[in-house]
């Protein structure tokens, strides 16, 4: 029988071994240092990644990138048979993509320069 401290250590190590999702971009969305007028599309992709949706305003020559930072679908599977597995730019603050709320909107001009950054779920501009 293993002592309680050893069991606790093994459990802690197992939890540390758990992997992170690279589809979930919540951390990148919170930590991205975007600067309107300076950052480019390439900077945004390198910091956060690709957007879930792109709208184009042909008249104003704008491109509007929308991020949710979340998976479209998520499901769990227990591999053991012992448990049961249990209105800005036409984008409103309640916009969602495949039922996920949009958490970041980046607006680019024709030259690919970042013009505006909007965080709809916080209801403000940054």
């Amino acid at each position: 029988m293993l002592p309680m401290t050893k069991l606790a250590s093994i459990l802690a190590l197992s939890l540390l071994a758990a992997c992170a999702s690279s589809i979930d971009r919540s951390v990148q969305l919170r930590g991205a240092k975007l600067v309107a007028g300076v950052s480019t599309k390439s900077d945004v992709v390198n910091m956060i990644g690709l957007p879930a949706k792109i709208d184009r305003d042909e008249a104003k020559k704008l491109e509007i990138w929308q991020y949710t930072g979340k998976a479209i679908n998520s499901s769990s599977f227990v591999p053991l048979p012992i448990l049961n597995a249990g209105d800005i730019y036409g984008v409103t603050t309640r916009s969602n993509i495949e039922n996920q709320p949009v958490t970041l909107i980046c607006v680019f001009d024709e030259a690919g320069r970042l013009l505006d950054i909007i965080k709809p779920t916080q209801g403000d501009k940054k």
């Binding site: 071994a17 992997c19 589809i23 390439s42 690709l50 998976a71 998520s74 599977f77 591999p79 680019f108």
Partner: peptide
């Protein structure tokens, strides 16, 4: 489509992203 190891279970996440901007 990713499979993430969560110690006691496996998690499958899906996503679809647009690269037409770059």
């Amino acid at each position: 489509v990713e499979t993430v190891y969560r110690v006691l279970w496996l998690e499958t996440n899906t996503s679809s992203l647009n690269f037409s901007g770059i």
